[in-house]
Design a binder for these strands. Structure first.
Length: 504
RNA sequence: CGGGGCGUAGCGCAGCCUGGUAGCGCGCCUGCUUUGGGAGCAGGAUGUCGGAGGUUCGAAUCCUCUCGCCCCGACCA
């Protein structure tokens, strides 16, 4: 009757974490690999999640005065060349369009023809092409600030891809702003990091560390990069969003100038900031368990699935009627500002049906059978609890408290993740202990964590640690207290701890 | 781009060493019986054995070349 396998996902996290992740994604039906190298197909269940993410973040951006626009997918090669560090950062991973036509060759195969005079690159990010527009739109300080965002796809030809975490093409938003003063641009950089923090913590239920990147980890061409870093269940760090203060670097290269109130000409101060479908990978690796994905209720494609159960033919109609009426009642309720999203699954597949929804990570499963109907109850299971744990709940109670239950799940997920992050964040002063933490006892075992350790500030020490242990400085946390210590690498004086971790 | 592994049905795999009609499990389709946590029985469909060339009477199997994928590294706002 019952399969011996305890968990829906094999291998488990402990057995093989990378493989577990791939299986979780597959079993959830969120996305799959496409025939195109390094690219993914986002399936309806995954795309609905993305749409919820987009809708929420988009509203948050607009609340800060940002407006949406759209710029071309193709960028003239010469644009990328304008900013020296920027070219260097992206040149190695660009898809390049060199032709605009196909012809049939002698062997009957299609061959590119019609060579472009100037190659086009597929945007890896849009600073340069948006900068071109901004330079034309800006002549007076009265034209500033310009506060833009675009939802788009970008392409970065990565050597090694992982679904959602790093794909050659991915969906994201990129915000680009131009300001008349440095202070205002810096303020915007932090403001957008605050938006990211709020979204990721309050919606994706992922606790983050906020901080500043070191020079070597900065966005190519940026003066300052700030970020949020989350801890995955294998204790590695995942950058969940970045916000860049670009100084006047891109304004110079794109010629974004304006005349100030004193009739003097100045270069504008710009920012850019982005989050991507990578957040979905982070969400999965933060909450999913050995039974599959767990969707935080606030972003879940559906909040609850109703599973009608009927033994006899004559029960079917009654149960289905009861189920539909319950669905209507639930759908009229709201949670966190949107209607309760209800699915009814009346497939006749026995227990497999419930497991499908567990693997998809739906927050609530409500079974409705003749026995429940008699008591006017549902048999309710929560995704943040064990699959077998279910409670009988009166229909009216269920309808009136579903928002509270969903909130409870949302909070529970965040608190669990926070506890995990705290349990695996350590202050380390001893070099040997630092090495031990980041050295795997055997090939595949989960190890490491967030190490708060002193760093002298030299790029040499940073590079040496990366070389020796594959550990990088994820950020210099804003909340790390100033204290005297000695560099974990060279022993020289340091005034502050930084966050070291292995990273995705 | 380096190291390792793998390409056989939708998915997961066996068969290869030792050449001889293409297999298994899951899924899928049909029917019946079932149904409160991954249902049972019976029947059925699905393959350029990644591709090209070679050896051979005969190649999934041996040889050569090639393409692709995965994992680990390197790289990676």
């Amino acid at each position: 009757m019952v399969k011996p396998a305890k968990n829906a996902i094999s291998p488990t996290r402990d057995e093989d974490y990378p493989m577990w992740y791939q299986e979780v994604v597959k079993a959830s039906e969120m996305a799959e690999k496409s025939p195109v190298r390094g690219c993914m197909v986002i399936k309806p269940w995954g795309y609905a999640l993305w749409e919820n993410i987009v809708a929420t973040m988009d509203g948050m951006f607009k609340d800060t005065g940002v407006k949406n626009a759209y710029f071309p997918l193709f960028i003239p090669l010469s644009y990328l060349e304008k900013e020296a560090e920027h070219v260097e950062g992206f040149a190695k991973e660009c898809a390049v369009v060199t032709h605009h036509r196909l012809e049939t060759g002698d062997d009957g195969k299609l061959v590119p023809a019609g060579k472009l005079t100037e190659p086009l690159i597929v945007r890896p990010t849009s600073e340069t092409i948006i900068g071109e527009s901004m330079s034309r739109w800006t002549s007076s300080y009265r034209d500033l600030p310009i506060l833009l965002n675009q939802w788009a796809n970008v392409v970065r030809w990565e050597m090694r891809t992982r679904i959602f975490l790093r794909t050659s093409e991915f969906l994201w938003q990129e915000g680009h702003t131009a300001h008349a003063s440095e202070a205002e641009a810096r303020e915007r950089t932090m403001m957008m990091l605050d938006v990211y923090t709020r979204f990721v913590e309050e919606y994706l239920a992922m606790p983050v560390v906020r901080g500043r990147k070191t020079a070597s980890e900065r966005f190519p061409g940026a003066v300052d990069t700030v970020c949020i870093e989350a801890m995955m269940q294998d204790k590695k760090a995942l950058q969940a969003g970045t916000s860049h203060f670009l100084g006047q670097n891109f304004a110079r290269s794109s010629d974004i100038r304006f005349q100030n109130a004193d009739k003097k000409e100045e270069f504008a101060w710009t920012t850019s900031w982005g989050t991507s479908t990578r957040m979905i990978g982070g969400m999965i690796m933060t909450h999913a368990d050995d039974d599959g994905v767990i969707m935080p209720p606030r972003v879940a494609p559906a909040h609850v699935v109703l599973l009608p159960i009927f033994r006899k033919e004559e029960d079917q109609r009654k149960v289905m009627e009861y189920t539909r009426s319950l669905a209507d009642a639930l759908g009229a309720r709201t949670y966190n500002g949107s209607r309760i999203r209800v699915e009814i699954d009346d497939r006749d597949t026995g227990g497999a049906r419930a497991w499908d929804w567990i693997k998809k990570g739906i927050p609530l499963r409500a079974e409705i059978g003749p026995r429940d109907m008699e008591k006017d109850c549902v048999f309710l299971g929560r995704r943040d609890e064990a699959p077998g744990k279910k409670v009988s709940l009166g229909r009216e109670d269920f309808i009136s408290t579903i928002d509270t239950i969903l909130d409870d799940i949302q909070n529970n997920l965040f608190n669990r993740a926070l506890a995990f992050k705290r349990a695996n964040t350590v202050e380390i002063d001893d070099t040997e202990a630092f090495k031990t933490l980041f050295t795997s006892p055997d090939e595949n075992s989960i190890h490491g964590g967030f190490a708060m350790a002193h760093w002298c500030g030299s790029a040499e020490c940073e590079a040496k640690i990366k070389e020796d242990l594959s550990v990088t400085i994820r950020c210099i946390p804003f909340d790390s207290k100033t204290e005297q210590g000695s560099c974990i690498c060279c022993g020289n004086a340091s005034g502050r701890r930084v966050l070291f971790a292995k990273a995705y």
